[in-house]
Design a protein around this nucleic acid. Sequence first.
DNA 1: GGCGTCACGGTTGAT
DNA 2: ATATCAACCGTGACG
Length: 342
Amino acid sequence: MSLRADWPVCAEQSYGEVNQLGGVFVNGRPLPNPVRLQIVELAQLGMRPCDISRQLRVSHGCVSKILARYNETGSILPGAIGGSKPRVTTPAVVRSIRDYKQGDPGIFAWEIRDRLLSDGVCDKYNVPSVSSISRILRNKIGSQSPHYESIKPGPAPLQYGHVYPYSSYSGPGAPTASRTGLPRSWHNILGFRAFMEPPALSGSDGHAAKVEDWTSVTSMPSMSGRPFPSGINAAEKTSELNLKYPQQHSSGLSGYVSACAYSPPNQYSVYGAPATNYMSPGHHWQAQSSSLTPIVAGWQQEASSRTEQHKQNNTENNRRRCKKAKEKMSHKVINSIKKDKV
DNA sequence: GGCGTCACGGTTGAT
DNA sequence: ATATCAACCGTGACG
């Protein structure tokens, strides 16, 4: 099985750089989905990450990251790149702060913060920091008429609702909602992405459209029959992608569908597994980190008890090993490139 | 030797 | 139109 037969090896063949393993990558850009799929597929076939790394010529850090993300989210797709955080100081929040301040001129910023939480104006994810509140008091309220919105230029204030729930927001006029129809960081918060927001996704301009190379996924034999969220404008960037990652569509991925948890569009999960999978008590989304903490702590304790001599030896050994490995690898790569050119 | 993690230099998109 | 910011990316190196 030669899975990388279609993977460009020489830098001259495509736009991109060549890593230590001889694989081509575009700095700053995600690996093409077929390669991501292969990584997951091979892992599920029992291949070790280090072998996958060598086979696909993708750094082991990348393989590790993709597999970790897949294990965590059930998706192979990269995250949404670019954009800005949504504002937390929405007009509604500013109005509330103003009201609190007017009701009690001596109120402290931290008290306002508590009240925003207790009154349900904000939740713990979007409540402004104390310094933000201070800034609002200073800049927006201190020097402003009580009718903040009325003097605000531009279109009528958006109806943000009383909170910014990451998990339940929907509807028009979302803060910082741009053509995606969804604030970017809501896709991203804690790794929860578009599956949180069915309406926006199913729209013609949902987040999925921003995922770089949908075309390459949907065009694959194993995926072509799979339904995807509607309105994906994958053609948008196809030409660019093809330029950067030529010859990437021919890999055989017939076994993928069963392996990878792509879900039908009615589950609104661009990133794979249905939202319920993430929300179910059985999934240790956040519990994971806490359950690991003692282990990490123990490891750190152990590590700190090592003698300096031991550490130095380890470092020195590691350097030697790396150097050797590099030399070995560079020979391999050179030979491989020579072969491929011939 | 394998693997998790992180700094780095890069890209992207919203503001 | 441009700059800034904050998200993301994969690589390469460390431990």
